[in-house]
Design a protein around this nucleic acid. Structure first.
Lengths: 232, 232
DNA sequence: CGCTATGTTGATCCATATCAATAAGTGTGG
DNA sequence: CCACACTTATTGATATGGATCAACATAGCG
């Protein structure tokens, strides 16, 4: 892997505290690859060969059953995915595909497990990362079980707005089709949900969302830190 | 804590490989308590003070939002809960209450974090536990998003049957009301779902379920290891 | 520039929720 | 040990959120 790609990976909480020689070891075995859109990176059920780090672009984790398919998570730079499968040496529970052209670092799972066993700092970081992942899924599940489609969308928009620094307008980052699957609804339903939010000051033009008065939307969405705060 | 309670805790994957002196340290600060049914052990949003180990009885993890409440997980002996919050020193994302009279070991979170930092074997075990928890939630979420109520129930019954060693009859372990919340449906709906399963050879009497011909039910449920196998 | 996939909108259907009434347990205190 | 109160489970009737089907618009792309 190229030198210049180290810093952004090194800066990830997962790798920040790791001993230099161990980080070197990980990077030596790692591949940096650029993928076109719509490439299936991993398939659920396959053995976990690599830990993936999205450096650029976007990836979706999805799952299928009985002919149905849903989006489980949307992954944006810089973050890792499938840490759990890598650590447990278990088959992937989700598939992954690129949404756009993406640059991804692939670190062999056995290297991860080796350094994990040898480097206490890395072990701690893996734990923090896993605990984080766990909490993300729990929050997502809470949203699915406790909110209806409109509420999930409203809160998603507020989260995106916050992620964009509170700007009055921001981009959706993903196709509405995929967003609908992520939010647990059909595309048609999402479209109607957007219209239902108009009275609350939400204006949508393509992938651009403009929230006139956040307070209005918040009254509907009732965001909770225990579901919506990514830092908690 | 009493000597005689050690073995079953020590035998847990989470504690099995830990150094004797560290395990001693954990147990010295731990409390073994017996709680009556319906006691709220922890409340979502509270700081995580203790790692909990259910030694006897049953506990449900639940979450609430905007006046609604749902069951996130059912915890039976011997297992731990809220490892993630303990490790991250973050607020609980879920509340917990006893379903029956329960014996629970409470280990101060700061002790867990201290031993975690000092004992590599324990750190590894925590990671394995967390990865396991993560995968459990992911599977649950997949079920919620990819299956309808009837399918979720059918698969739940098959899982319970497997957990009971494949016996033709087994107990539900929890009130139907709570099971319905866990499966993401209303009690009325669960009741009707049970009746819908009669043609598939499912007989319910109180909390006892009898599956005449598993093959028949399997055809409907289409269980998948990536959703239903607890070991994967 | 046309082809194809995505998004929107309307009509309709269906699964699930809600409301209501009753039955069946379960626990408590006399 | 039974009667009473209260919770849970069931069943039926009805409402509704969301899915499906269909048609069309639009946007991205070769």
């Amino acid at each position: 892997m190229l030198e210049r790609d180290f810093p952004e990976i090194r800066a990830l909480p997962l790798f920040a505290e790791i001993a230099p020689e161990n980080f070197e070891a990980l990077m030596r075995g790692a591949y940096l690859q650029t993928f076109p859109p719509q490439i299936e990176l991993i398939r659920e059920g396959d053995p976990s060969d690599f830990l993936h780090v999205v450096v650029e672009g976007a990836v979706e984790l999805f799952a299928a059953w009985n002919g149905r398919e849903t989006v489980m998570q949307l992954v944006h730079p810089v973050s890792t995915f499938i840490v759990a499968a890598t650590i447990r040496d278990a088959p992937y529970l989700m598939s992954a595909r690129t949404l756009e052209r993406a640059r991804i670092v692939l670190i062999p799972s056995q290297d991860i497990r080796a350094v994990f066993a040898a480097d206490p700092a890395f072990a701690r970081a893996v734990v923090a990362e896993l605990a984080q992942c766990y909490r993300v899924v729990v929050k997502h599940t809470k949203g699915l079980k406790l909110r209806n489609g409109l509420e999930r969308l409203a809160n998603h928009l507020l989260r995106q707005r916050a992620a964009a620094g509170g700007a009055p307008a921001f981009e959706l980052e993903v196709e509405k089709r995929r967003l609908s699957a992520f939010l647990g609804m059909t595309p048609e339903n999402l479209s109607r949900a957007f219209r239902s939010l108009e009275p609350y000051g939400v204006k949508v033009d393509g992938a651009t969302v403009r929230i006139a008065d956040p307070a209005e939307l918040i009254r509907l969405a009732r965001p909770s830190p225990l579901i919506d705060d990514s830092s908690v």
